[in-house]
């Protein structure tokens, strides 16, 4: 509705209301036994899709992960595997 729009085209809703999970064909799965908590996966994620749990292990935010697999590629101990989505 026109009445609901601001007078000028100003966007103010943070983009994380948009979920991009459906873009994904493969999802990263982290083997915590191999993870060294080096944060490389977090550092190189273009989608801000990696958070940390209470003890510092990375957690994939699957609502936003697009499955680019940079994290798996850059993970030195190879703790991340890309698994095909159903």
């Amino acid at each position: 509705m026109e009445e609901d729009l601001p007078e000028a085209p100003i966007a103010t809703t943070p983009s994380d209301v948009n979920h991009t999970a459906s873009w994904r064909t493969f999802r990263p799965v982290i083997d915590l036994k191999l993870c060294t908590k080096c944060n490389v996966c977090w550092k190189f994620c273009p989608d801000d899709a990696i958070a940390f749990d209470g003890v510092g292990f990375p957690v994939i935010r699957l609502d936003y992960c697009k499955g680019c697999a940079i994290c798996a590629e850059e993970c030195k101990p190879k703790a991340i595997t890309m698994v095909k989505e159903d």
Partner: peptide, 10 residues
Amino acid sequence: GKAMRLGSFT
């Protein structure tokens, strides 16, 4: 300090 984009695309 605010999340606001003037111009945008639609």
